[in-house]
Design a protein around this nucleic acid. Sequence first.
DNA 1: TTAACTGTATTATTTCGATTAGTACAGTTA
DNA 2: TAACTGTACTAATCGAAATAATACAGTTAA
Lengths: 123, 123
Amino acid sequence: MLQLDYKSGVPICEQIVNGFIRLKALGVLNGGDQLPSVRSLAIKLSVNPNTIQKAYAILESDGVIYSVKGKGSYMAEGSSSDLAVIKKAKENFKQAVTSANQLGLTNLELKELVDEVLKEEAE
Amino acid sequence: MLQLDYKSGVPICEQIVNGFIRLKALGVLNGGDQLPSVRSLAIKLSVNPNTIQKAYAILESDGVIYSVKGKGSYMAEGSSSDLAVIKKAKENFKQAVTSANQLGLTNLELKELVDEVLKEEAE
DNA sequence: TTAACTGTATTATTTCGATTAGTACAGTTA
DNA sequence: TAACTGTACTAATCGAAATAATACAGTTAA
C-alpha cells in the first residue's frame, strides 16, 4: 500500500504525505475510506508514531483526509484533481519543464525522460 | 548575476552549482569567462567561503568550469561543459518527474503538461 | 622581493530540520 | 472496563549543511 525509501533523502513524513495523495489520485483509496491508525502504520513502516501523526496532520490541513478523535482518519470526499496539492504539483512540474527547456532540452527529449523515469518507477 | 533563496530549503551549495550551469546555458557566461573568486563571491552572497569552494569543486568535477591555482576559476570551453549542462538539466528534470509522479500524476498527464508549457513558450 | 591576490585542504564547531522517544490526555467502542 | 482511536507536548538524538578558523601553494604586479 505504501512504499518507503529510507535512503532516498526524501523525509519519511513527506513520503507518507505524498503516498496517500497518490493513492487517492490513483483511485486506490476513495472518499470515506479509513486509513490505518497512527500507531499501527508506525509499526508497519517501522517509523515513529509521531512521524505518522505529523503526516496525518499535514494531510488534514491540506484537505486530503479528515480525522475523528477516538475513531480514526478517513479519506476526504471530492475529486483528487481539485486538491490544492495536485495543483501545486502541476505548477512545480511546469516550472521544471520551463527550466529544462531553457537549458536546451526539447519537447521530445523531455517526453523520453518522462518515459525513462516512469519505467524505472514501475519496477 | 546569481540569485539565492536562503529559505527555499535547497542547499546553498546546490543553488550556486545550478546557478552557474544556468548562466552558461543561457549564454550569460561563455567558455573562458572568469568566475568571481571564492572569497569575493562568498562576501557578495553572504555565505561561507567553504560553501563556494565546495560548489566550485563540484562544478569542476562536472566539467562546467576549470580552476587554476593562483589565478582563478573559468568557464570551460565548448562541448565538455555543454555536455555537463545537458546532463545536469536532465537530472533536474528527472527529479521533477519523480516528484510529480509520487503525487499521482500519470505519464500521460505529464506529457500533456510538457506540451502545454512548450506551446506557451513558442508564442 | 614583497604584498595581495588566487585556489585548495583540513579539522572542529555550529546550526537546523527530521526523527525518535516517552508520556499524557481525550474520545469511541465492544 | 479494556482496548482501541487521535492529539499534544517536551526532550533527546541524529545527520547534513553550513560556518569558522587556519594553513599551504601558485600567480601577479608594484
